[in-house]
């Protein structure tokens, strides 16, 4: 049995912002991470604010140049979404590797971002998509870029009384290709050992990329784009030799830790291998 706490379940966003205004509440989105942390006594909430009635945060909306994903949209919803598959396929690939079907049907994108785990599977795709986090409180609305929002493992710029209400992402263009690849200890229910998301505008006729995004997961404290590697992608034709040289340098831009899943050295090597595979697939 979980430790004792009270639960309130606001019926609207306005009520929710009221309920969390004093900063004493613990927010419950999907709960797949929160309940585990309460069970393990890593978190001892007095008051849980259950957001499950806020249906206004469960939609994926097409807003001309961008897609806005409500913070309570589940990973499963993203995987099945026509809009996400058409305009944000790299995010679909990331969300499809989260946990298990059951976890994907419950866990939310907003929750994944708020937890700010370096191994979160939605974060490398959202990073290469330059996602922005939409935040609301009684004081109003603000937006932060994802890489400014997350400050260190598990820590974000979310202030007391604030709630993530959505994630805004520019639509990918038709000439862009993308791929997310994750290495885990097995295919399902595995936390990433290392992962990479790559997005590039690629001209197959001249095998050249004009713009790109690269972000590694599970090997850096905070997932960020790697401009040094991105520049290398645009410096000439991406033949096998170029792909090999670029991916061999991946380890220079990672700062992995050793833990029970993998050693730092292995993770560094796997970043190179994953990047090689992804670039190979994207350019063939």
């Amino acid at each position: 049995m979980l430790q004792a706490f009270d639960v309130i379940r606001p019926r609207s966003l306005a009520d929710a912002l009221d309920a969390i205004a004093d900063g004493n509440a613990t927010l419950l989105a999907g709960g797949t991470d929160l309940l585990v942390r309460i069970k393990k006594r890593l978190l001892k909430p007095q008051l849980v604010v259950d957001l499950s009635a806020l249906s206004e945060l469960t939609e994926i909306e097409d807003e001309r140049e961008q897609i806005v994903i409500g913070s309570l949209v589940t990973h499963g919803q993203i995987v099945e979404s026509t809009l996400a598959n058409r305009y944000l396929p790299v995010l679909v690939q990331g969300c499809a590797t989260v946990g298990s079907p059951q976890i994907r049907n419950t866990g939310t994108l907003g929750g994944n971002i708020a937890n700010a785990s370096p191994a979160a599977d939605s974060l490398p795709p959202l990073t290469v998509l330059d996602a922005r986090v939409i935040i609301q409180s009684l004081a109003g609305k603000r937006e932060l870029s994802l890489d400014a929002f997350i400050t260190s493992p598990g820590k974000t710029q979310l202030r007391s009384g604030e709630l993530i209400t959505g994630i805004a992402v520019q639509k990918m263009q038709d000439n862009e290709r993308c791929l997310y690849r994750k290495l885990g200890q097995r295919k399902a229910l595995a936390i990433s050992v290392a992962s990479v998301a790559v997005r590039m505008a690629f001209d197959p006729a001249i095998r050249t990329s004009s713009a790109s995004g690269i972000a590694f997961g599970a090997v850096v404290p905070v997932i960020r784009r790697v401009p040094e590697l991105e520049r290398m992608l645009s410096q000439g034709p991406l033949d096998l030799q170029a792909i090999k040289e670029i991916s061999e340098r991946a380890g220079e831009f990672c700062a992995p830790i050793s833990d029970l899943r993998a050693s730092a050295e292995y993770r560094r090597n796997m970043c190179s291998s994953l990047l090689y595979e992804v670039l190979y697939d994207l350019t063939s």
């Binding site: 639960v7 797949t32 309940l35 585990v36 259950d50 499950s52 499963g76 079907p101 059951q102 419950t106």
Partner: peptide, 15 residues
């Protein structure tokens, strides 16, 4: 209609 882990769902969430 969707499979979920009932051990990770708080009862208020099924209202």
């Amino acid at each position: 209609g969707k499979a979920v882990d009932s051990c990770l769902i708080l009862i208020s969430q099924v209202q």
